[in-house]
């Protein structure tokens, strides 16, 4: 009798643990599905100057103490990617290698890093990440004009100074989606998805994953 109970108990525990493993595997699969169906686009926020409007025209001082113009016509006909970051934002740091590569490989795109706070802290941050000090501006007003509430935030401005795409960017794909949005003539990937399906399911409406 005791042997039978022992065997049955062992068998039951094996099956319970196996079921636990299956449940864990299923939840992981659900997580993977979540990531796959979430549109890889920058989350567009309806704050600040809208896409299609001219970017606020500003003359700012960069970390190398030279003036740097934001907005208005670019004499060299480059697009400007304005990237709002903070040295204390871990997600911003993960995007820096992609941005330095864009700076190096895309001469028609001017990447400008924007932040505010202690100048010395930013100089050390720019140096440690190999960022060009002449493309790094500190301006509280710039953030206020674009109404940046969450980081990392990026704005793509065309050569004529018009905002072409903007949004919260958490991944390289989100950054790419800004350029893709401009190429397709939409304000954001969210608008593109809305156009593709007139009645999108609820999870697709807002799109993109929000930042920390």
């Amino acid at each position: 009798m005791t042997d039978a109970l022992l065997v049955s108990n062992a068998l039951l525990w094996c099956m319970v643990v196996a079921l636990g493993l299956v449940v864990l595997a299923l939840t992981r699969q659900v997580g993977l599905l979540h990531e796959r169906i979430a549109p890889a686009g920058a989350l567009a926020v309806a704050k600040g100057p809208a896409v299609g409007e001219p970017a606020p025209s500003m003359e700012l001082l960069n970390l190398a103490n030279q003036t740097l113009a934001i907005g208005g016509d670019d004499v060299r006909e480059r697009r400007t990617l304005l990237f709002f970051l903070s040295p204390t934002c871990p997600v911003c740091e993960t995007l820096l290698p992609t941005l330095t590569r864009v700076t190096r490989e895309e001469p028609r795109v001017r990447v400008v890093f924007a932040s505010d706070g202690e100048r010395d802290e930013h100089i050390a941050f720019a140096r440690s990440h190999g960022l060009d000090a002449s493309r790094y501006v500190l301006s509280r007003e710039l953030g206020l004009r674009f109404e940046v509430a969450k980081l990392p935030f990026a704005v793509l401005i065309d050569a004529a100074g018009i905002i072409r795409a903007k949004g919260l960017v958490n991944t390289r794909e989100h950054l790419e989606s800004l350029f893709e949005a401009q190429d397709r003539g939409v304000a954001s990937i969210q608008e593109f998805l809305d156009r593709e399906s007139p009645e999108p399911p609820k999870t697709r409406v807002a799109g993109g994953r929000s930042g920390r």
């Binding site: 992981r28 659900v30 997580g31 979540h34 999870t203 409406v205 807002a206 993109g208």
Partner: peptide, 17 residues
């Protein structure tokens, strides 16, 4: 824990920012 994480992040996707 994974289910809670997924539920919270999908709620965040659906909610207006």
């Amino acid at each position: 824990s994974q289910l809670v994480a997924q539920a919270s992040s999908s709620r965040q996707i659906g909610s207006p920012s």
